[in-house]
Write a protein that binds this DNA or RNA. Structure first.
Lengths: 141, 141
DNA sequence: CTCTGTGCAAAGCGTTTGCAAACGA
DNA sequence: TCGTTTGCAAACGCTTTGCACAGAG
């Protein structure tokens, strides 16, 4: 079975990016959390890699976004978070507690409809459902 | 026929917000443009209302967002923009030229599916399709 | 009259940049 | 070795805040 490290290495090499411990650490944090903010990535990596700089995290997030390895998710009134591009899913955000969850929901039909209506070539879609999660519902009047 | 001004007044009064010329001007700019950034709102209003302050625009955008009169739209690698909450539509963004367009596309079925799968009460959805617009397609290899 | 909203200037914060040293290929 | 990446510190730009005054209800 292929290890994750090897996958990250291939992913980076394919895009002509060098494989550095910082980049691998960032990708590991993003994968293990699903979606995570820059500050949280930095805080977590610093525990095992104290010399890493916040600027390095920023630079790498930008580089890897440009290379379509990562993408950003932004729920209303929350920090930008990042996730791996190969995760095909939508998001649901609780307006009350702020949690952000992944939902396996196929958007390919809607993408086709949008392409037909607009004449655009559609190759991605970012979807965030806004609502109240089951836990918060219990606590409401 | 009811004027727009009256609508804005009612909208604000219903939410216990005072009707000020600044707020009405902001709402007018957002409505006429569909979606617009804070800086653009400020620049346009200043032409007819030179004394308005950027801080006032920020404060009002936040207040009216909290009151669910406005909502924000954020396409990847672009500034936050704002639109009226009563506009039910999705967005399509061209990755090449950056334009953002509205698309009348009904998401209510997808919202139901999401609610069923997650147990959330879903009351809104933010959708941005990413692609290449017809004009930019012509210029590509 | 009272409380909310406005304008200004300053502070705050997240993000980017420039540069020399370190590192990957 | 050569081009890329890192870390640091300073700079930047967007957003928020505090306060005195003005304005809406």
């Amino acid at each position: 079975m292929m290890t994750k490290i090897t996958n990250y290495e291939n992913e980076l090499k394919t895009k002509n990016l060098k494989v550095t411990p910082q980049r691998v650490a960032i990708l590991k944090e993003i994968e293990s959390s699903g979606h995570i903010s820059i500050e949280d990535i930095y805080d977590r990596i610093k525990k095992t890699y104290p010399s890493i700089s916040l600027a390095t995290v920023y630079k790498n997030i930008n580089t890897m976004q440009d290379a379509h390895i990562l993408r950003s998710v932004k729920a209303p009134s929350q920090k930008q978070k990042f996730e791996l591009c190969d995760d095909k899913h939508v998001h649901v955000s609780c307006q009350k507690c702020g949690r952000l969850e992944d939902v396996r929901l196929d958007m390919s039909e809607v993408m086709k409809t949008c392409a037909n209506e607009t004449g655009y070539d559609i190759y991605d879609v970012s979807t965030i459902f806004i609502g109240i999660c089951p836990e918060c519902k219990k606590e409401l009047p």
